[in-house]
Design a protein around this nucleic acid. Sequence first.
DNA 1: AATGAATGAGGCTTCATTCAT
DNA 2: AATGAATGAAGCCTCATTCAT
Lengths: 196, 196, 196, 196
Amino acid sequence: MAKFNNLRQQILDEARHLLVGEGYGGMSMRKIAHRVGCTPTSIYIYFQNKDQLIHTLIEEGMDNLHQDMMICQSVEQEPLRQFENLCRIFLEFGFANPEYYLIMFQMPTEPMSPYPIEKYRKARRNLKEFATLIFELRGDCSEEDALLAATSVWALLHGSTSLFLTQRIDTSIDRENFISLTINSAVSMLDIVSKP
Amino acid sequence: MAKFNNLRQQILDEARHLLVGEGYGGMSMRKIAHRVGCTPTSIYIYFQNKDQLIHTLIEEGMDNLHQDMMICQSVEQEPLRQFENLCRIFLEFGFANPEYYLIMFQMPTEPMSPYPIEKYRKARRNLKEFATLIFELRGDCSEEDALLAATSVWALLHGSTSLFLTQRIDTSIDRENFISLTINSAVSMLDIVSKP
Amino acid sequence: MAKFNNLRQQILDEARHLLVGEGYGGMSMRKIAHRVGCTPTSIYIYFQNKDQLIHTLIEEGMDNLHQDMMICQSVEQEPLRQFENLCRIFLEFGFANPEYYLIMFQMPTEPMSPYPIEKYRKARRNLKEFATLIFELRGDCSEEDALLAATSVWALLHGSTSLFLTQRIDTSIDRENFISLTINSAVSMLDIVSKP
Amino acid sequence: MAKFNNLRQQILDEARHLLVGEGYGGMSMRKIAHRVGCTPTSIYIYFQNKDQLIHTLIEEGMDNLHQDMMICQSVEQEPLRQFENLCRIFLEFGFANPEYYLIMFQMPTEPMSPYPIEKYRKARRNLKEFATLIFELRGDCSEEDALLAATSVWALLHGSTSLFLTQRIDTSIDRENFISLTINSAVSMLDIVSKP
DNA sequence: AATGAATGAGGCTTCATTCAT
DNA sequence: AATGAATGAAGCCTCATTCAT
């Protein structure tokens, strides 16, 4: 029974490769089927249509990222260290799962049918984790401020990951250096929260 | 008179809309032609093929952004104020030209034929502007450090713009607030340059 | 039942007509589909692409000709008579299957993707039949000479067929007369093999 | 004034290359124009349309071949020798001018508008030359027989050339050998004229 | 659970040709 | 003598999807 739902997973995997490698238009049911070794028709057994397949991919990615972050949060440690680690987890998720990352945060949404609203709630959870931590770190700020700061931190993390993954960054820059630098920058951004 | 090269410009405009709205695969010669009111064939009078049309768009965007930044640089002012303004220019370019921005910095490059190398030099100029300014602001750092910091600042600016434009940011957040916050964050990032 | 693979065969038939009538460029998937009464897309169910369709035609023709020649060879008879009959078979194949013939021996090969090498072996078999027979008829010649003579005989047969089929021959000439004449000429050519 | 009608000739030359290299459909006004360095429109200054351009090519080829044969005929020599030389001239014209040859004797005529009848008279002249010579060589035959024999000789010569030019002949066969063999075969064919 | 046949729309691109200049 | 802009038709081929089996 190792083969149980084997095909479904294979389809998802190939879809992910194609989606990132060739974009929305380049990911076709035919190509997926050909690579997986089934007929295009078979894909429709597992997924209603192309867009629903992509939505499944997004959801998978969101779950994976959230799981990584939860593991990080479950470790007892000093808040600043925790913040740093959470940033690192986010960056490393992007570098380790470029396909999921780009699908989740970068892919143009317009050619697709809209991503079901109820699934977006999952997406928001991750931002909340950052905000909570920032609120803890600087108890003197409002919740609103913390959310704003979290958004800004997220922007930095996302920008770094995005530029790296889309190869818009100088190739001479060392990846580990770049990660450290980004985390330091994120920390320095905490200072600006609720300053007079 | 007013019609001089009218069609060519119309084609570029519609291509830009489609490219951002529907991605690489969604921008089709047929659609462009239909919207502009000419035949697909006519497009080939002005552009060799689809990719060359897109390359033209990228180049236009790069030129526009660089021009904006040059105007900013030409104003005499205190370095820190100049840095802030340069950040603002970058952000506002993105918000004002979402289509150009996404094409330049976000569009997946893979389905396209590669962007000609000699045109990339233009793209690098903009990063250099940031690096130069940071080097001026903190003379005690190496040029290399300045470039690294510039990259990080760029990552923040890009992340903010990207999340905003792709509507991944909470719609309740006020745009002006967000811009100010991002600029403040950028400034705070300067502190981390060449710290022991 | 009778409809089994009906469409595939219809496609091959129309393709053959068009290929001979209008050349490589004139045989279009659209035209085939229109005449057969299906959509162009359906053709791709049975054939990978245009060239592979043509290759199939060539192979079919080669097989048919070889089969005709084998039937002739299987009849016990005096060698010279056998040689004459083999010539006649070749000529009559051409006249009876002008489309196959021209595709096999006359169509320019350049616009096409190259005919797979392993299929060419089939094509060479037919020349070998002639060479073997000539070698039998005139045991005093080398195998090499026999092959050369066979090639020459083949050239005559091909030239006659070709001129006839492409209507470059005076229309007043009687076909049966012409066939007889050609066969007599072929026989007379045997004399030149291995003469001092 | 060396440039007089330069463009017209260049167009004809490129058209010839393309026609043989890529067939009727592959020879396009655009390609010709691009290679010659003018606009497609310019071609229409010299030629009414595509087919008329091709007709011009055929005519040129016919004239060239006829001229070669006339030069040969003008040399005083023993009839048999003359016959052999005429055969050689024909073969060598084909090998030296593969493009003209294939256009004249091999190209499918159907996709083209019909070759004007009055120009075909030129084409027939060449066959007449052979017939005349054969009639001289064997005065005991009827003119009709001579024409029939000439046609058969022509078929051999054409078959040899055609197979060679379309690369359907074993590449190991030496060209000079093949030419000699073909001429000997042609001579041997003379014997069959008007035998009881 | 999976397939094979089919479709209609649309993808990019090139064609021969015309017309105004 | 030559061009630049434009067109309508057609080129090959792939798409997502459906339906009967």
